[in-house]
Computed example of a mutant assay.
Amino acid sequence: MIYFDQAASSHPKPPVVGEAMLYALNEIGANPGRGSHKLAKEAAGIITKTRKTASRIFGCSDPKKVLFYQNATAALNQAIKGLRWSKGDHVIATTFEHNSIRRPLESINKQYGVSVTYVPWNGDESEFLKQIGNSIRTETRLIAVTHASNVTGAVTPVEQIASVANQSDIPILVDASQTAGHKTLHMRNMGIDMMALPGHKGLLGPQGTGMLMIEGDIDLHPLNHGGTGSYSENPGQPSQWPERLESGTLNTPGIAGLHAAMQSYETRNIGNVPRETILSQTVLQGLKQIEGITCYGPDVQDERMPIVAFNVLNIPSQEIAMVLDSHYDIAVRAGLHCSPLTHETLNTTNRGVVRASFSMYNTEEEAEQFLQAIQEVTESYNLV
């Protein structure tokens, strides 16, 4: 199969990822932080070194504020719902938000009466930043933005947004789900206060892993309460980090795989243009030459993540994806991609879009086969 659904979950993984997971599962198996025997200490060591590695890679000053969750969605929920909200508070987000940000925001809107402004992003950076600045109120308590659209791959100017936010002393939360592993991210240098990311996308780590990283003194109250392996005499949740925001047994095999994935990322993050970026440009250029194809998002020369969104004639996107799967053994994703605001912006709500997304393991030959398949599919529908 040609797997062009990397933006949903990467496949395959670097071999070291599975090896690290199997070792943690079969050779260690113990509960981190829940014992003084050597296996428990070894499990805890995996957790600690993964925090330190993430802290170094992503510029988070305190490794204890690198928090583990089962995915980026859980991390974003903790970041948003963990803030202290009051009626009349205000949040700024964008029309490119995934439901992992939009739905928690709508939840605090209903629960606390927090209002939300969704600023449209159309590629005009100066106008976009101007609208964000104009949307700031005295009641604004948070700016929450996706770093890149999971639908089109368009990249938002996070550093400039952070500068605007910091000037008004407003914390900024960044959803790096589509950029982690593809772009260099450094929280301190970029002015980011909170950043959430998954392990299983661009980092090429395992599913069931995600992180929330906090820079500075942001007070979050925990969404979950329970055992932390320490401070057990206290009936309340510990105030210490990371225990304050991590209850229950962590996914040690998954975190071991995540650590291996981050180490692999460090070795290949050497400044060259990634293979997946080149492939996305090749596919986009090829699609634009096929009559009947509509492409969405940044143009070929503009910055984008390795994602290409398009439609074929007036055919529903799900139908195109089904044809590619059943007749060509090509995996893509179609529909709304959990980002309905984006489709409202693109005017594609009724049929969604077809999304092809790439990783370092995809090849030029696969891109050529994909373009040939789209050419054939388009021609076949034109004959009907």
Rank of each mutant, 00 (worst) to 15 (best):
S9R: 13
H11T: 03
H11D: 02
K13R: 15
A24R: 07
G29K: 09
R34P: 00
H37G: 10
H37D: 10
L39H: 04
A54V: 10
A54M: 11
D62K: 10
P63L: 12
Y69P: 02
T73R: 09
N77M: 13
R84E: 13
I108R: 04
K110I: 04
Y118T: 12
K130P: 04
N134G: 03
S135A: 14
I136H: 00
H147L: 02
H147V: 03
H147N: 10
G153I: 00
P157H: 03
E159H: 03
Q160E: 14
Q167A: 13
D169S: 15
P171L: 00
N189T: 00
M190T: 05
M190P: 01
G191M: 08
D193I: 03
L204Y: 10
M211H: 01
G227R: 12
T228G: 05
Y231N: 11
S239N: 08
Q240F: 08
P253V: 02
G254H: 01
M262D: 06
S264W: 05
N269Q: 14
G271N: 03
V300R: 09
Q301E: 14
Q301V: 13
M305K: 04
P306C: 07
A309M: 06
N311R: 13
N311W: 03
N314K: 13
V323F: 01
D329A: 10
T342W: 02
N347L: 12
R355C: 09
R355Q: 09
M360L: 12
E365G: 11
A367D: 06
Y381K: 02
